[in-house]
């Protein structure tokens, strides 16, 4: 397996493309590589959203526990994706569980550290939020499309044929 340094990993992320050398150095100081075995939770709903993950290898399920029912996967996340957006908005607590479906390698960014930096440097904060907004918008759109029930059998919306 190819071992990459944090700087190289972060530089390869489209999310961070075009950021200044200074900002990338700062992000590197807030980042660390993490490994999760299959079945292990990256985070659980209600926990403090103090970081987010850049998924490098493996698959992660975003899940919801509903008492009396089986665990519900609302979305799966795959290499190249960001896991976790609750760090951006108060009260900074996870809304879903994130569970490794396979062995996972991810780079995590310390969100407390990044939030503080964004507060101190609004231009950076604006840049970071601009980069996360499309991710949030895509996930909102995906959730809405899932609600549409694209493949409902025609019999459920009127008989034909």
């Amino acid at each position: 397996m190819e071992i990459k340094g944090l700087a190289e990993v972060l530089a390869a992320q489209p999310l961070f493309a075009g950021l200044s050398t200074e900002t990338m150095s700062f992000l590197e100081s807030c980042a660390k590589n993490e490994v999760f075995e299959a079945g292990v939770f990256l985070f659980k709903a209600g926990g403090q959203a103090d970081r987010f993950f850049l998924l490098r290898e493996g698959d992660v399920a975003l899940e919801l526990q509903i008492p009396g029912r089986a665990r519900l996967t609302v979305q799966s996340v795959h290499p190249g994706h960001v896991v976790g957006a609750s760090w951006m908005l108060p009260p900074y607590s996870w809304r879903f569980d994130a569970r490794a479906l396979t062995a996972v390698r991810a780079t995590s960014i310390d969100a407390t550290c990044l939030r503080r930096k964004c507060d101190d440097n609004p231009a950076l904060g604006y840049e970071v939020f601009k980069r996360f907004l499309p991710i949030l918008a895509d996930r909102l759109q995906a959730a809405r499309v899932q609600l549409v029930d694209l493949y409902a059998p025609p019999g459920e919306i009127g008989r034909a044929g």
């Binding site: 399920a61 089986a70 996967t73 609302v74 979305q75 799966s76 479906l101 995906a142 499309v145 029930d149």
Partner: peptide, 14 residues
Amino acid sequence: VDRHSDQWSGRVGV
């Protein structure tokens, strides 16, 4: 798949 089941270990999403 849009909606997963316990037996499904693949992707979930549109």
